[in-house]
Structure formats: C-alpha cells, structure tokens
C-alpha cells in the first residue's frame, strides 16, 4: 500500500507542475481534474472517506464543468468563437 501512496504522491507533484506549464487552458483544466482524482484516492487512503467523496464530486466534477463553461464564455475553446 505504501508503494501505491508514493506513486500517487509523485503523480500529484507531476500534475501540480504540469498544470501551469501547459500551453492551452483546456489542457490545464484536464490536468487539474487529474490532480483532483489523485487527491480523492489519496484522501481515501488516508482514511477520510468524507473528504474523498467531496473531493471527487467537487474537484473533479463540478469545478471542471465550471472551468469549461468559463472557457466557453470567454471564447477560449476551439470552435466557440462566433464568426
């Protein structure tokens, strides 16, 4: 189990570094989603299932939806610019 934990922690660091370094905002949002999922698994490994459920629902689900909608609203996604 401790090996899994170390792998997840390394994944967290990779995601955290990759999120600001991505060129496109869409990629950043997806990397942030991956960060939230890893964090949710880590919470459940740390025996806090309450936080794990909330992190999975809020971090990976709702926050990404809101980010996508914002990107659509500011026309930062491909194909949403009205020409």
């Amino acid at each position: 189990m401790i090996v899994l934990e170390y792998i997840l922690l390394a994944g967290l660091v990779v995601c955290a570094v990759a999120a600001p370094l991505c060129k496109r905002l869409l990629t950043t949002v997806i990397v942030y989603m991956a960060f939230s999922l890893l964090m949710a698994v880590l919470w459940s490994l740390l025996q806090t299932p309450d936080l794990a459920i909330t992190e999975a629902a809020v971090g990976a689900g709702i926050t990404s939806i809101l980010f996508f909608l914002t990107l659509k609203k500011i026309h930062a996604l491909k194909g949403t610019r009205d020409e």
């Binding site: 794990a52 909330t54 809020v58």
Partner: peptide, 25 residues
Amino acid sequence: YVLLNGEVSPGGGFSGGTILGAGLI
C-alpha cells in the same frame, strides 16, 4: 442516500448536495 446516511456513514450535506447538483446538471 449519501445525504441522509451522513449520520452513520461517510457523506453528509456537502457531498450529497454536490451529487444532487451534479444530477440536476
């Protein structure tokens, strides 16, 4: 289930409410 079972199992208002909102979405 998550909402009303928050007393005895992991869950409760915040996580259950978020799932409910996700269902509405």
